[in-house]
Amino acid sequence: MERFLQQIVNGVSLGSIYALIALGYTMVYGIIKLINFAHGDVLMIGAFVSFAVTTFTRLGFIPALLISMVTCMCLGVIIERVAYKPLRNSSRIAVLITAIGVSLLLEYTLMYFVGAQTRSFRQGVLPATIYNIGGVRISVQQIIIILLSLVLMMLLQFIVRKTKQGKAMRAVSFDKEAAQLMGINVDRTISFTFLLGSALAGAAGVMVGIYYNSIDPLMGMMPGLKAFVAAVFGGIGNIPGAMVGGLSIGVIETLVAGYGASLYRDAAVFAILILVLILKPSGLMGKGGGSKV
């Protein structure tokens, strides 16, 4: 039972990272129907920025986190403006290939400058205390990851539900043409969506770096793919769905790894994805809409 609880704790902290990344995927997909393959690499840039900030300056965790989030915001908006906006009216496969190209560009440009070796964060960025609650070990890092993602998700919910810009986002993702007719600036709303998603990816990048304590230019690929699986699992385009999906994928992955099949943890995630797609293609919380003729 203790072992099970321990896996749940580990799973929830990994899952909240996935949830943060999945939110970026799901918002972008909801608004322009693009699987933004470069999202995982925005996350990687976020991790490297915070690594640079904590290593070369004496700034603490919170300033480093904020600087990465801001850098990623700018990066996300630039990528959208330069690479995706000119393709607004092309086929979806062309935009997807562009996204893959941007992803490779970020990975290998960074690799050109910093090399392919892995790096780890300076000791003492976060206290290494581990609490023992009834046999279940929980570290300060895990607590911070879980709390921080909770705060960020609530902030996002507030922006999407209560602000004018959030209302515009929901309108554009519901019906782009109608939103435009109502005087909503669609291009600006799309940029704003990338801004929000990339900021979350930046925060998630810092957390991935802390969680695995290693960063390298290709680190964004696997968490990116799994977070996309999480977004589909929860119902793509659906914000609460991405949160639920992220947590479930994190918990499932650590349970599979914790009970002896750690070599198959990635395969298990994708097998679940295929099962979900076959049984309920719209995802756990997605609305299944039949196609109209």
Binding site: A83, P86, L87, I97, T98, I100, G101, V102, S103, L104
Partner: peptide
């Protein structure tokens, strides 16, 4: 390769 990819698609 990545630059070519983006350029071709654009």
């Amino acid at each position: 390769y990545a630059l070519l990819l983006v350029a071709i698609m654009l």
